[in-house]
């Protein structure tokens, strides 16, 4: 455990200003940044604030000698793809670092392939290697349930699971593990591996974005690239979101990003197709034409844009 960032209180300290305590850690800035950076996700943001409050109080309690235990901080982030789990995990690492619960504050993001080996004797060193890199920070395991393959009793994933469990219990001072994936599959995974369930302190569910939120996300992404919709383009994109959601492999914000990449390509080709000069406005505007050429609008489409 890292040393507390603030000095030990004077003996006889009886009253503590929690807001001042929070301000000193600069965690509020991370929370504000999270608000700015992520559209919507109100329940997630509330949960993060709750956890941060708990950790601040816990820190004060430890300083006052009310508790000595390092709290369990491992978490599970459930939700569909593109709902902001990785971004929130990055901010969570920052919060834990600023509060002194982890020493470095970096995030190591892995999937099954990074942990599980191909042959006998391969998995343990591989898993340990990843754990070593993550120590001092947060290990983010995406689609964690792939570690567990009950259909294959000799699957090496089991070995990785055992090492993970051991480290999650014994090295609580050294790293925090966040499991991420679809809610239903994660639930099954935890039921089959009760060891994880009991070691996870915080579950956070990431809801799908509403259409309006996805529109706001799309506009924010465009703005960061110095593009914007004209009125027709915006209307078309609203229609696009509604249509895309009904199609397979919908991945919330990630689908929006992919769609925008394609629309920028269409815009560029549109300019080449029309002879003449382009203006600054032409270069920055996405129009209805760029949006509506998507296959998402084709009723017969079986594949998404």
């Amino acid at each position: 455990m890292a040393e507390p960032l603030t000095p030990v209180p004077a003996p006889g300290e009886t009253a503590i200003d929690l807001h001042k305590e929070l301000a000193e850690t600069q965690v509020a800035e991370v929370l504000d940044e999270l608000d700015r950076e992520l559209v919507g996700l109100a329940p997630v943001k509330t949960r993060i604030r709750e956890i941060a409050a708990l950790l601040v109080v816990d820190r004060v309690r430890r300083r006052m000698g009310l508790t000595a235990e390092t709290p369990t901080l491992h978490m599970s982030f459930t939700g569909n793809p593109g709902t902001g789990k990785t971004t929130v995990a990055l901010r969570m690492a920052e919060i834990l670092y600023k509060l002194g619960y982890i020493r470095r504050g970096h995030l190591v993001s892995v999937t099954r392939d990074d942990l599980v080996g191909q042959y006998i004797g391969h998995t343990a060193p591989k898993t340990k290697e990843v754990l070593k890199k993550a120590m001092g920070g947060v290990l983010f395991i995406d689609e964690a349930y792939y570690l567990y393959r009950p259909e294959n009793e000799r699957d090496y994933g089991q070995e990785a699971i055992e090492i993970l469990l051991q480290v999650m219990e014994n090295q609580r001072d050294d790293l925090v593990v966040i499991f991420a994936g679809y809610a239903d599959r994660m639930d099954k995974f935890f039921r089959a591996n009760p060891g994880f369930r009991s070691r996870i302190a915080h579950h956070i569910d990431f809801p799908d974005y509403t259409d309006a939120e996805l529109m706001a996300i799309g506009e924010m992404m465009l703005k960061s690239l110095s593009y914007h919709f004209d009125a027709g383009g915006a209307a078309a994109f609203r229609d696009y979101i509604a249509a895309r959601r009904k199609q397979p492999h919908f991945a919330n914000a990630r689908s929006i990003r992919n769609a925008l990449d394609r629309m920028r390509m269409r815009q560029a080709n549109r300019h080449f197709a029309h002879p003449g000069l382009v203006t600054l406005d032409d270069l920055t505007t996405i129009t209805a034409e760029d949006v509506r050429a998507s296959r998402v609008f084709n009723q017969d489409a079986t594949k998404p844009d």
Binding site: R104, H106, L131, K133, M135, G136, G137, D174
Partner: peptide, 13 residues
């Protein structure tokens, strides 16, 4: 040799 680690913990282990 421990390449790419960020913290002393794994070396102490």
């Amino acid at each position: 040799p421990a390449f790419d680690v960020k913290d002393a913990a794994p070396i102490m282990l």
